[in-house]
Amino acid sequence: MNFRTKIGLLFVVTHFVILVYTFICKFLGGFTFEELTTLIALLIPLFSAYTTAVVKDIIKNNQQTADPEITYSRPFRFVIIFICSLFIIFLFTIITLKAFNYGFEDFEQLKLTVGVVEAIFGGYVAQLIFSIYTPEKTETPAGGTE
């Protein structure tokens, strides 16, 4: 399995693991139903663009070919692993802290923190993920590309 596939699958799996973990925290008494639905509504957009790009690429390339594997530089691989891992760890940490009533006085603080994490990491993660999963150019009715 190449580096690109590993990173893509990491994001797809993490997306669903975080959602399941959030439900588990709710059932352990960490969130009310209203808080759960709000948190899910905040988390889904964080990963949906990345997950969609990865899944579309996996579906498009569902047959193994003899194409040469793209080799990424060590610094690029380090940066993508480091930043994406920090993003995931921060999300798990803030969800856990709120679920067990550490570090947050109320749910509003969690919502603001999720927004800050998204703002800090969102641009970097998007640049990194979309650099290895470039969106396809689509043809417009006028014959140009978007």
Rank of each mutant, 00 (worst) to 15 (best):
I132P: 09
N62P: 02
R4P: 09
Q63S: 13
T22E: 06
T96L: 13
K111H: 07
V117F: 08
H15W: 08
H15G: 03
E69P: 07
I94P: 00
A126C: 14
K26W: 05
L91I: 09
L19D: 02
T96A: 10
T71R: 13
I7N: 00
T51I: 08
L91A: 01
T38Y: 14
Q64E: 15
T65H: 11
Y124T: 09
V117S: 06
T113R: 12
T51D: 05
I24P: 02
F76V: 03
I95G: 00
F78S: 04
F121T: 03
I89P: 05
F23M: 12
V116E: 08
Q127Y: 08
L112S: 12
V20G: 12
Y72F: 10
F11Q: 05
F107P: 07
G123S: 11
F16E: 11
F92K: 04
E35S: 13
F27H: 07
I83V: 11
Q127C: 04
L91Q: 00
T38E: 08
F92Y: 05
F27C: 02
N62Y: 07
I44D: 01
A126K: 13
G8A: 10
Y50C: 04
Y21H: 11
A119C: 12
V55G: 02
C25V: 06
F92T: 04
T32R: 05
F76C: 03
N2S: 13
I89D: 03
Q63E: 10
G29W: 09
T134W: 04
E35R: 01
N2T: 15
